[in-house]
Simulated scan of single mutants.
Amino acid sequence: MTIVLMRPADAQCWIFDLDNTLYPASCRLFDQVERRMGEYVQQLLNLEPDAARTLQKQYFRDHQTTLNGLMIHHGINPADFLEFVHQIDVSGVLADERLGQALERLPGRKLIYTNGSVRHAENVMARLGVTRHFEGIFDIAEAAFVPKPDIMAYRALVARHGFDPNKAIMLDDMPRNLAPAAELGMTTVWVKTDVSWAQPAEQTHYIHHIAENLADWLHAVTKDGSKA
């Protein structure tokens, strides 16, 4: 673990991932999204379910997102894909008053940065009861469908919202998504989950903090002004 670059109390901008970060992975929303992605691939290419899931996973591994792989290899309309895969039941996400209280106390601006869609983010934020705490959502469409962890998308985020990366903190459940943020000068927080494909590689110098529980971590940093 590296020495932290900046005290959270000094942050001017907080960038939160959405899925499995703002809400706990135990809600298993992404399980539904994955099933919908498999169904989309199955219908698009007339594949058997197992073959569709295998191809979907391959595109995720090779191109960072299934959407990116489908755009590259099949020229799909990304808006259609996003609409289809986010037709899910979000009732498992419950209002989180403690998270809302922590967000209220955070200094600086707060943004959502997601490889998903604005509509999906809005649905989840409404369920959590935290919409009012965020000034904007930077989704995959605004990133010109360039997904995390491509550093070009992060540069587009910075340009769009006009913040200093050296005064920003990024939180994400995917360790690989934190590496470009650290490269640009952001302080990073890995929101730890038990999801097998969201574990860090051996090199984790780009992770500056680990949050076992998002609300607990945010309350801690706003209480004492720092977190090692």
Rank of each mutant, 00 (worst) to 15 (best):
L214V: 03
Y40H: 09
V4F: 00
N77W: 10
R155F: 04
A168S: 15
N68R: 15
L94A: 15
P8S: 12
L171S: 00
L106M: 09
T54V: 08
D150G: 07
T204V: 12
H161F: 15
T114V: 01
K57C: 14
P165I: 12
R28L: 02
H219D: 08
H208F: 03
L157H: 08
D50Q: 14
Y113L: 09
D96R: 12
H208G: 02
V191G: 00
A156D: 14
S226K: 04
G116Q: 09
V118M: 01
L103N: 04
F81K: 06
A168H: 00
Y206M: 01
M174A: 11
P147N: 10
E183Q: 15
I140S: 07
H120S: 11
R36D: 09
L99M: 02
E39Y: 05
Q12S: 13
T2F: 09
A228C: 04
R98E: 15
V221Y: 02
L184M: 14
D172C: 06
A156F: 00
Y206S: 05
L171E: 09
T222G: 06
Q43N: 13
R132N: 15
H208T: 05
P78S: 07
L45A: 12
F163A: 13
L157T: 06
D62N: 08
M152C: 14
H205N: 11
E142R: 14
N46C: 07
K227H: 03
D31G: 14
G100Q: 05
M152F: 11
I169K: 10
Y113V: 03
E97I: 12
L18H: 01
R176I: 08
N68H: 13
L5T: 15
H86A: 08
I210F: 00
R105I: 03
A144R: 13
H63I: 00
V158Y: 04
S226R: 02
L128K: 02
R7I: 05
V4Q: 06
L55P: 03
T193I: 01
W197N: 15
A102R: 04
V130Y: 02
H208I: 03
L55K: 02
G69L: 07
V33R: 01
P107W: 00
P180H: 03
L218S: 04
V189D: 01
I210K: 04
A182S: 15
V158R: 06
I210V: 15
R127D: 11
Q199L: 01
L178V: 08
H86C: 10
Q58G: 12
Q42Y: 12
R160G: 13
V191H: 08
R35A: 13
D139G: 07
V191Q: 04
H205T: 12
P165R: 05
D224E: 15
K223V: 03
N213F: 06
V130E: 03
D10N: 13
A211G: 06
E212P: 02
L103T: 07
H133D: 13
F81H: 01
A228D: 10
G108S: 02
F84N: 12
K57M: 12
L18T: 10
D164P: 05
P78D: 14
I72H: 10
L67T: 09
P147Y: 10
L106E: 10
R160F: 13
A220F: 00
M125Y: 12
R53N: 14
H63N: 08
G69V: 02
D89I: 04
K110C: 13
I88T: 12
G162E: 15
L67A: 10
R35W: 04
Y23N: 13
N166F: 08
L157F: 03
P180A: 06
E48T: 11
E212W: 10
M37A: 04
Q199H: 10
T2V: 02
D173I: 08
